[in-house]
C-alpha cells in the first residue's frame, strides 16, 4: 500500500534528532510536527521570523501578529525567539537549520528540484523555497512518487523550471525512501506492501536497487 500523507510525515519524523532546528514546508511537511517523538526536543523554524513555533492557538489566545510561513495563526513554544526576515534567511542560507522538509513537483537524479512553477498555469512564486534548498545541507523532499495518471516525478531531468540545482539528496515518496548520489536514484526503503517492481515502473530516472530493500518500519 502506498503511504498516506500522515505516514509520509511519520517516516520523515524518524529522521529527526534531539536538538534539531527544523524548517517544515507547507502541506505534508507541516504534518511532521505531529510525529515528533515525546522524548525529543525539536525546534521549528518558520521563515517569516519565528524560531520555536508552537501549536495552533485557541479562540482566546489567537493573535493576528503571530503567524507561521503558511500565514496560519500559531503560538510560540517555550524558548522561542523572533527576528526579522533577513535574520531568518541568514539562518537558512548560512546552513544553521539542521533539517529542511519540503514538497516538490519533480526531482531528478542530479538532485535538481522543481517545485514552484508550472509554465502556462498560474505562477504564485517561490516564497522561501529557493533559499531553503540552496542553504540547507540536510533536505528531505516529500511528494507522491508519480502523478495520478502514473507519470513519474523522479526523473532523469526535471522538465519544469528549477527551484534549485543539485541540492536534493533524499526523497520520501508514498512508495519509497530514496537517496540521490552520483547522478542516480538509490532505493533505500519501500513502503510496506509495495513491490520493488512497482517502484521501478514509476521511476523514470536511473534507479539503483540493492539486493535487499527493507520495508519501512512504523
Amino acid at each position: 500500500m502506498a503511504l498516506s500523507r500522515e505516514q509520509i510525515a511519520q517516516r520523515v519524523a524518524q529522521e529527526l534528532q534531539d536538538g534539531f532546528y527544523v524548517n517544515l514546508g507547507i502541506g505534508i511537511p507541516t504534518l511532521v510536527a505531529n510525529f515528533v517523538p515525546d522524548n525529543m526536543d525539536v525546534m521549528l523554524q518558520s521563515e517569516n521570523g519565528l524560531l520555536g513555533m508552537g501549536q495552533f492557538p485557541t479562540e482566546e489566545t489567537i493573535d493576528a501578529d503571530l503567524i507561521n510561513a503558511g500565514k496560519q495563526t500559531v503560538t510560540m513554544a517555550k524558548g522561542a525567539s523572533i527576528f526579522d526576515s533577513a535574520e531568518s534567511f541568514a539562518m537558512i542560507r548560512g546552513g544553521h537549520v539542521d533539517l529542511t522538509v519540503l514538497g516538490a513537483f519533480e526531482v531528478d537524479a542530479n538532485g535538481n528540484i522543481a517545485s514552484y512553477m508550472i509554465p502556462g498555469k498560474l505562477i504564485k512564486g517561490m516564497g522561501g523555497a529557493m533559499d531553503l534548498v540552496a542553504g540547507a545541507d540536510n533536505i528531505i523532499v516529500t511528494m507522491t512518487h508519480a502523478s495520478k495518471h502514473g507519470v513519474s516525478k523522479l526523473l532523469s531531468n526535471c522538465t519544469l523550471p528549477l527551484t534549485g540545482k543539485g541540492c536534493i539528496k533524499r526523497v520520501l515518496t508514498d512508495l519509497a525512501f530514496i537517496e540521490i548520489k552520483d547522478g542516480k536514484f538509490h532505493l533505500l526503503e519501500r513502503a510496506p506492501g509495495v513491490s520493488v517492481a512497482e517502484i521501478i515502473k514509476l521511476t523514470e530516472g536511473e534507479l539503483v536497487i540493492p539486493v535487499d530493500v527493507p520495508e519501512m518500519q512504523f
Binding site: 501549536q55 495552533f56 492557538p57 485557541t58 479562540e59 482566546e60 489567537i62 510560540m76
Partner: peptide, 18 residues
C-alpha cells in the same frame, strides 16, 4: 484592523500548552 488570513485554531479543551 489586523485582518487574519488563515485563522487556524484548536478547541480550548484540547489545548495542551507548550
Amino acid at each position: 484592523e489586523k485582518r487574519i488570513e488563515q485563522r487556524t485554531v484548536q478547541p480550548s479543551s484540547t489545548a495542551a500548552g507548550e
